[in-house]
Amino acid sequence: MTAAPSLGKDLITLEELSADQIRLILDTAEPFKEVSERPIKKTPALRGKTIVNLFFEDSTRTRISFEFAEKRLSADTVSISSSGSSVSKGETLVDTARNLEAMRIDMVVIRHPNSGAARFLADRIRSNVVNAGDGKHEHPTQGLLDILTLRDHFGRIEGLKLCIVGDVLHSRVARSNIWGLRKLGAEVAVCGPKTLLPRGIEELGVTVFPRIEDAIQWADALNVLRLQLERMQSGFIPSLREYNRVFGVSRERLARAPGEIMVLHPGPMNRGVEIDSDVADGPHSLILKQVTNGVAVRMAVLYLLAGGAPDWRVPAGDER
């Protein structure tokens, strides 16, 4: 595997990865899926490595998914959230970074409310940095697990048509999906009220559907974004009720699709707003598969950044 692409020091965006690098992560995730199915869910791949999960913004799913990925790789991990840490005492990000560096850690997983914060940190420390979501910029591991879930289901990404539905303006998930899927040859569209679609989004190579009905006619799969309650208060939409009526993904709407159509959601869901319960829990849903794949993708990313060889084969799980 001499010519295999490596990931470099950090994973900050899917925009800056090549198609080969994305495929490398997806392929590396495959054998890791199996680790989580074992009675003893552990492999020694990152034994002796120290990882800090630095969460400047609340997160349940992503943080726990990273923690499981780290623990199943046998890394030593510490999780810090902004409340109750030096950050709440006014420490700057650059000082936090330098202090971590001084403790000789190997990797940092960072979630931050400001776009660009992960890159900022990565440029200032020698440790590997994994972006677990920076502001409205990117959430690369979410993008990767979405792509892996689509690949599992459809058996391909090239030529697949995915439409991202909802609050694209404020979504880091949307941006990572757009870059990752397009690099692998998928067609990507966005659909939502114009108030929640960013200016110039077409220039990223996506189609814009003003109406959800048209998006459903076109797509093989929908990635339905969470609509945050604050969006109503800041005047982007009149009400959640109206949003559900105009853009909500319902079983009735999906029934009009010309063929099979699958639904993803990065979570947490607002049932009855952007997605109806019978869709979330029904046959169209890939949502829990996404969550399962999240752990495998994150294991793959951490493993590859730590310098793991892409041809890694999972050793027997009970050798310890």
Partner: peptide, 15 residues
Amino acid sequence: HEGVVSTRLGLKGIP
């Protein structure tokens, strides 16, 4: 500035 770069970077734009 609000435009394709702010969209890419996920920064709030000023039209």
